[in-house]
Write a protein that binds this DNA or RNA. Structure first.
Lengths: 290, 290
DNA sequence: CATGATGTCTGACTTTAGTCAGATATGCCG
DNA sequence: CGGCATATCTGACTAAAGTCAGACATCATG
């Protein structure tokens, strides 16, 4: 029972029974699972009824009845949406928020209990991130965001930390030509964050310049999301954004200590060019005509 | 959304929807999940009705009806058990084996599809092993087995391979005092394998000698199962077995290149003693009075 | 403002899962 | 053999989930 397929299936069995246990713990609050799921979806900020229905994959009749039962319990209120009275929005009442908090506490306790099983938390978390990223691969959203947003700053922080580990001389942002945030906002450029569920797992910046080209900066993919071809997707998205912005020439610099990046550029139509700036860190320079 | 709890919960969400997708694919064969699960349990070699019921957590009434429906479909046959006619055993018919094979194919395809998502298969598999071992931690069974069994040989092979990696001079079993299998069988000694589901994830041998003590040999825990205190459980089981066998003094040798092992022995009542054999590999020797 | 599309709701229905109290057959033990 | 335990089966029930057709209000558009 040691071949890859058996190992995946052992994982499936383990996880199936764990999921079942969590569902069972949710039943402890005296309400069927369907209603509990709707309540939790609302608690997590999904207010449009159609969105919840879609998210949970429910029939509209069933959905309507579940909303009614939550209303009867006094946990939610529904109202027509301001801009389109055909649609309904649901919000938690005070009692609903209390009940939602109780479900959150159950979920958190379950998660903590799981982490406590293992004496090497970080290894366990890394394994979970890897699997979650793989499973949600097709659902990774590439969102244009402000480079100063919390998500972007998280990615950049991880990116700098990794450069520090991988460059033999370390990495100090202040010595590098740190791009100005305004150069990575439309219409001069953009900044794209790859979001898997609520977790930022990659980023890339497009920095407008005055020199007839734009630069690709800060391409980073979280360790747990490597191997999923996310770097390529981010680069494709950057090129699309550049075309939209009327940019026809892209440049970037990188370092030979990051071989997977160089590999990606070479395999996607980038051409090595001579050094075009005096940043101390890069030793490889590329260009791509769109 | 980067704190540990959120990461665990992101994993839960990802995995819940994947499990749901597998269930849905099973429904494609025109039979409710309950019946499909029973059929698969039988296909995987569980023939006793009581055992299946216990494994799937089903009520006896429900179980009986599910068996009846599979019988009506011509997929299984039930009969009274030879040695106890109150119990029933179920077996697949020819059609049942075909149907079971179709479910297996679905499971395998799903597993392969998942592996194909990722370009670093081994990392993904290691992550799944780690999580599966953590989740099934309480269900790990410590089974006494023949040291020549397939499970035992797998563990020993992994153990030797790891010593080879960790000893600077490598490891060659033939140079070591490889215990005779018969010394690790009752009543002289024993060999214990830790089984997680169908996967052997650890082992330990108790080797009887003529010298007034028994030796603990071949303590190994799979990398994916480290951090779960399995080594301690294996050692406890060995001590219990030794007591049962009337052994009152245990010895073992180990190497300082395996610090976690030395740490375990020191923290569980073992006392360092002088070298007591001429094996070239160990450099640390311990003894414990039971 | 008529028309068709959209989103929600209601009623009537089915399937699946699960519970529980007996009925029945068999095994074990004195 | 009687009496009790065990394993399964049957019938009668409930709860939850899901399906489907049609009703109704609202929106967008020509």
């Amino acid at each position: 029972m040691l071949d890859p397929i058996s190992r995946v299936r052992r994982f499936n069995r383990a996880v199936t029974s764990a999921v079942g246990a969590l569902d069972t713990s949710f039943l402890g609050r005296g309400r069927p699972l369907g209603a509990a799921r709707v309540l939790n979806a609302i608690g997590h900020g999904r207010s449009d009824v159609a969105e919840i229905r879609d998210y949970l994959g429910l029939d509209s009749g069933l959905m309507s009845r579940l909303l009614r039962s939550l209303e009867d319990e006094g946990l939610i209120e529904t109202a027509a949406r301001e801009d389109d009275a055909r649609c309904r929005v649901a919000t938690l009442t005070r009692a609903g928020r209390r009940e939602f908090a109780a479900y959150e506490a159950l979920s958190n306790a379950q998660a903590e209990g799981f982490l406590a099983q293992h004496s090497q938390r970080e290894a366990l978390l890394a394994a979970m991130d890897l699997i979650a990223s793989t499973l949600t691969r097709e659902r990774v959203a590439l969102d244009e965001m402000d480079p100063r947003s919390e998500e972007a700053r998280h990615c950049l922080g991880e990116y700098y930390a990794e450069l520090g580990r991988r460059f033999s001389q370390g990495f100090d942002v202040s010595l590098s030509r740190d791009p100005d945030a305004k150069d990575m906002r439309r219409p001069r450029g953009t900044f794209i964050v790859a979001m898997s569920d609520t977790l930022p797992i990659g980023c890339v910046g497009l920095k407008g310049t005055e020199s007839g080209y734009a630069e690709v900066k800060r391409l980073w993919v979280a360790p747990s999301a490597r191997g999923l071809r996310l770097g390529r997707r981010l680069m494709d998205a950057t090129e699309s954004a550049a075309r939209e912005l009327g940019i026809s020439l892209l440049r970037l610099d990188t370092n030979s200590a990051l071989p997977e990046a160089g590999q990606l550029y070479r395999s996607t139509g980038w051409r090595a060019i001579p050094r075009y700036n005096d940043d101390p860190y890069p030793d490889l320079f590329f260009e791509k005509q769109l």
